[in-house]
């Protein structure tokens, strides 16, 4: 068997080009105004280069816009100071060394626009102007990196907050029996969205603070049930999940055509799925078997008149419960 290394050349496929990472997405979402530096250290054309050198050194900046009566007249970077140093010409005014053809960017543009300029040119910074072309800030690659990192942390933090709030739901709400009900309508033949409901249910359970093993078991069971509704029903069906501190009840029901022989349907490998469904990786006759494996209790009722009703239960042990169940028990016994 020849497993020798083949050429490592990477061909950029259409998929590569269309693949947008979360950071890239943020670069499109974030506006320049959200990441730019607003406190601008500006210069005037008549300042001498020696003074600017001191300013750059003390303020730790590597470039600044040059203003005349508040209007942008040019930009001066550390490169320009190096040129002046080389020419032993620090006494000359800024106007001699600044670039007066300045590229600007609007504060309402997405960050990606600035990134494009930075990639194409050798500019280190861009003056930012508002819709009236008035200077409002300056943006550097460093600002963008910082902005993106902050935004990413924010996205992460948001999820944490949601999780924290959700996980306290059952403790914060007092009743004799609290439950949270989620309902999803599943369309027949909708393979494109197949699995969306189970994904959302799994996410909800994790946000509620469920043990990941439990969330996974529910996810797998519901996913198979969801695919069954998509593949085998006349008009689709409904998934209903009831979450209680001590148990999760899952229900999937439809209005037909029903399962003629449940015993046969429960047999591993038995399937009535079409070739088309099998090509999609389903219909292997393992769905109901998988479901049974994942839950503590499974009830399947079906008739060719009224359709199919699948009821599943997962019981939560004390350590996995969403709230202190023993407390609730005492309350109700009083």
């Amino acid at each position: 068997m020849d497993t020798g290394s083949s050429p490592k050349e990477r061909v950029v496929t259409d998929q590569d080009a269309q693949n947008i990472t979360r950071v890239e997405e943020l670069a499109y979402e974030l506006k320049i105004s959200q990441v730019m530096t607003r406190e601008i250290r500006s210069l005037t054309p008549d300042m001498n280069m020696g003074d600017v050198l001191d300013i750059f050194r003390s303020q730790r900046v590597s470039g600044a816009p040059v203003l005349v009566n508040g209007e942008l007249a040019g930009i001066l970077s550390i490169e320009d100071i190096i040129r002046a140093l080389r020419a032993v010409d620090l006494a000359s005014p800024v106007s001699k060394y600044m670039s007066s053809q300045v590229m600007t960017i609007h504060d309402y543009d997405p960050v990606i626009e600035a990134l494009k300029v930075f990639v194409k040119s050798n500019y280190g910074r861009l003056p930012v102007v508002d819709e009236n072309n008035k200077l409002v800030g300056i943006i550097t690659k460093g600002d963008i990196t910082r902005g993106l990192l902050n935004a990413l942390q924010h996205v992460y933090h948001e999820e944490e907050v949601i999780r924290y709030r959700a996980s306290h739901l059952f403790e914060d709400i007092i009743s004799d029996r609290t439950s949270l009900i989620l309902r999803y309508r599943i369309k027949h033949g909708d393979f494109t969205h197949g699995g969306n409901a189970s994904a959302n249910i799994k996410r909800a359970l994790l946000r509620l603070g469920a043990n990941p093993q439990i969330a996974r078991r529910c996810g797998i069971a519901i996913y198979e049930a969801e695919m069954n509704l998509i593949i085998h029903t006349n008009n689709g069906g409904t998934i209903r999940v009831e979450i209680e501190p001590h148990q999760i009840s899952l229900e999937a029901y439809d209005d037909g055509p029903g399962i003629p022989n449940i015993q046969l349907a429960m047999q591993p490998g038995y399937s009535t799925a079409s070739e088309e469904v099998r090509e999609k990786g389903f219909g292997a006759g393992m769905g109901l078997v998988n479901i049974k494996r994942c839950v503590d209790d499974m009830r399947l009722e079906s008739s060719t008149i009224s359709g199919t009703n699948l009821r599943l239960k997962i019981f939560l042990r004390e350590k996995d419960a969403f709230a202190d169940v023993s407390q609730q028990g005492k309350e109700t016994k009083k």
Binding site: T192, I220, G281, M286, G287
Partner: peptide, 29 residues
Amino acid sequence: SDVLASIQPDAVLLTGLCNPQVVRTAQVA
């Protein structure tokens, strides 16, 4: 269904199937 039946968490999935259900399966499992 084979994946859902017996895969353990944190595995790499090798597959020839390319539809979105692969991703859903991966997420659930």
